[in-house]
């Protein structure tokens, strides 16, 4: 069953993340694929995440397909112009990739090639329109394609962006441009997220809440200070602190599982997107503790 069918069926979906390696040694990424296969519904394959050069998202998706894990092609607009993006979309389609997540992409300033020329010929909203155009059989210039694509297009939203209003204007534009599902930036405050969902439920789109496991109180403080749109509330930081060094990770896993369980049981949203960031081996455990396996 494709991701579109799973998510549209109303099942509480779990998406994960595969980060392609920097280099040709794919042992670790194949191990991650093996770990996640059969557990999560689909894996996003990141696209030069944080502007750090790695194996391309497209090739990473192919590795997932070859090894039995359904991929979501993450596409950023930082590294390719409209010609490159459309060419890769056609390529992805013939390789059997069915889901595309349209992103603007972190600035090159964040990555390991800071002197690179950023592209941003188009951006996330426009990329969604491109995908929908190609699904209807036309490229961006209106030329008819010899065979249309059939992608399920998604996008991202940051429910705790500060200020929030401009972010919501963009969210609504993404809906209008054809996004069918959204994965959010990591969320930690359930009450605030419920408020966001009350708003988001006006729109005919599926929302998957972003989950990032806390490894320590220090990590929470670091993210609060440095990652735009992430706000770990003080009570969770205190909970992590109280756990002490040895139990910190275990507590972080429990918090993630608790949040997932609540999101599912209270039907707050349509699923979760677990960003393991180097802890892929812990994803099945989080799912078990959340009662999903």
């Amino acid at each position: 069953m494709s991701f579109r069918d799973i998510v549209e069926s109303g099942k509480f979906v779990v998406t994960g993340e595969i980060g392609p390696p920097k280099g040709t040694d794919i042992k670790e990424v194949l191990h991650h694929i093996e770990l996640l296969k059969g557990k999560i519904d689909v894996a996003n394959v990141t696209d030069n995440q944080a502007a750090v050069m790695r194996i391309s998202s497209l090739a990473g998706c192919q590795l997932c397909l070859q090894n039995g894990l359904e991929p979501v092609l993450q596409m950023t607009c930082r590294d390719r112009n409209r010609i490159g993006l459309q060419a890769d979309l056609l390529g992805a389609s013939v390789l059997g990739i069915k889901t595309v997540l349209c992103l603007t992409g972190d600035h090159v300033n964040a990555g390991d090639h800071k002197q690179a020329k950023s592209v941003y010929d188009v951006e996330s909203v426009q990329l969604l329109k491109i995908v929908n155009g190609m699904n209807n059989g036309f490229d961006m210039s209106g030329n008819e394609l010899q065979g249309a694509t059939d992608f399920y297009p998604g996008a991202v939203v940051t429910p705790e962006s500060v200020p929030l209003e401009p972010q919501l204007v963009k969210f609504e534009k993404k809906v209008e441009a054809g996004a069918k599902f959204f994965q959010t930036q990591a969320i930690y405050n359930m009450d605030k997220f419920k408020d966001f969902m009350k708003y988001a439920r006006q729109f005919p789109v599926k929302i998957l809440a972003g989950i990032v496991v806390l490894k320590s109180a220090g990590m929470a403080n670091f993210m609060n200070k440095n990652v735009p749109g992430i706000m770990v509330p003080q009570d969770l930081i205190d909970e992590m602190k109280a756990a002490g060094k040895e139990k910190a990770l275990d507590t972080g896993l429990n918090i993630a599982a608790r949040h997932i369980r609540q999101l599912k049981e209270e039907k707050i949203c349509d699923g979760v997107h677990i960003m393991a960031i180097g802890m892929e081996d812990k994803v099945p455990e989080i799912m078990e503790r959340a009662g999903l396996l």
Partner: peptide, 15 residues
């Protein structure tokens, strides 16, 4: 910094 045309990206941070 990205010459965006449809609103802020996820990197917008307290203005």
């Amino acid at each position: 910094s990205k010459s965006l045309l449809n609103g802020p990206c996820g990197g917008t941070n307290n203005g």
